[in-house]
Amino acid sequence: MTENTGISYVKGDATAPHGEGVKVIVHLCNDLGGWGKGFVLALSRRWPEPEVAYRRWHRERARNDFGLGAAQFVQVADQLWVANVVGQRGILSRAPGSVRAGETPQGSKGAPVRYEAIDAGLGRVADRARKLGASVHMPRIGYGLAGGEWSRVEPLISGRLTRRGIGVTVYDR
């Protein structure tokens, strides 16, 4: 556990969270309705429900809360939920770090990560986790395909979750 954040870091698979009790797996989605790279592939291999729900949520966005900062909660087992958090504007068309000078990601200006949206989404996750009495589990969200910096995401997780007494485990492969 990192002393100043309260976040536990472990090696492993975030789709197989450790511990007892109710758990919420958090990951980031884009605002384009795209699902097909990164952590979502691991989710879809285990459960079809989060992808189906996300695609429907995006398709019906004119009649719901879909948008940056929103969070959708999908129950995949008796004590297990997946939180689809919209924290990216657009997507990277290439791997992070390989976007050429002057090139912008599809549907985005610069890296797709939106820290304000992650913060708002994590607030929604905190509210749901408290209601469920759940711990929160995730890969390093906002990092990787989102093009963000962990040093900017980690304080958001700490501020929204661990400081409110919600246990958080981050999984590194």
Rank of each mutant, 00 (worst) to 15 (best):
A134C: 10
G102C: 07
E3H: 06
G36F: 11
E103H: 07
S98M: 11
N84F: 00
G102T: 04
N30P: 06
S108E: 02
V24E: 08
P139L: 03
V99I: 13
Y9E: 13
S108G: 04
R46C: 06
L32W: 12
R130Q: 14
R100T: 03
E49I: 00
T2W: 05
A14T: 13
E60I: 12
V99K: 12
V168I: 06
Y115Q: 08
R63G: 12
S151W: 00
V170S: 15
I25W: 03
V26A: 11
H58M: 02
H18I: 12
D78C: 03
L28C: 09
A53W: 05
I141M: 14
A62M: 12
F39W: 05
R89E: 08
G38C: 13
E3Y: 01
V74R: 04
G12L: 14
I25H: 05
Y115M: 08
A77N: 12
K11F: 07
V86L: 02
A42R: 12
V153R: 00
G165P: 14
V40Q: 00
M1F: 12
R89H: 08
R89F: 02
A95K: 14
A111M: 06
M138E: 01
S44E: 11
L68W: 09
G6E: 02
S108A: 15
Q72R: 11
W47N: 07
N84Q: 01
Q72Y: 14
R152Q: 13
E20G: 09
A120R: 13
Y115E: 06
A111K: 07
I25S: 07
R89P: 04
T15G: 14
E116K: 03
R173I: 10
S135A: 15
G107V: 07
V85Y: 04
P17L: 02
G12R: 10
A14G: 15
Y143K: 00
A71V: 07
V76P: 13
G97V: 03
A77E: 15
D119F: 00
L28M: 06
H27W: 01
A101C: 05
I118A: 05
A101S: 11
V125L: 00
Y9G: 09
F39K: 02
L156P: 00
A14I: 14
P50F: 05
Q88L: 05
G34C: 07
E49Q: 13
A101E: 09
Y143Q: 00
Y54V: 04
D78A: 10
G12N: 12
I141Q: 06
L122D: 09
G148W: 00
D31C: 05
W150T: 02
E51H: 03
R55S: 05
A95L: 08
R173C: 04
T162N: 07
R100L: 07
R100W: 07
V99C: 13
P105V: 04
G12M: 13
W150A: 02
E149R: 09
E154R: 15
G12I: 15
H137W: 01
R173H: 14
R94T: 08
L92N: 08
G107S: 08
V22Y: 02
A71D: 14
R163D: 10
Y115K: 10
A134H: 10
A77G: 11
G144K: 11
C29E: 14
A101M: 08
T104E: 13
R61G: 13
S98D: 08
I91G: 08
L28Q: 04
D127M: 02
W150N: 01
G159P: 11
G34K: 12
R94G: 04
E3Q: 10
G121F: 00
W150P: 03
I118P: 07
G107K: 08
R152N: 06
Y115C: 07
Y143M: 01
R160V: 01
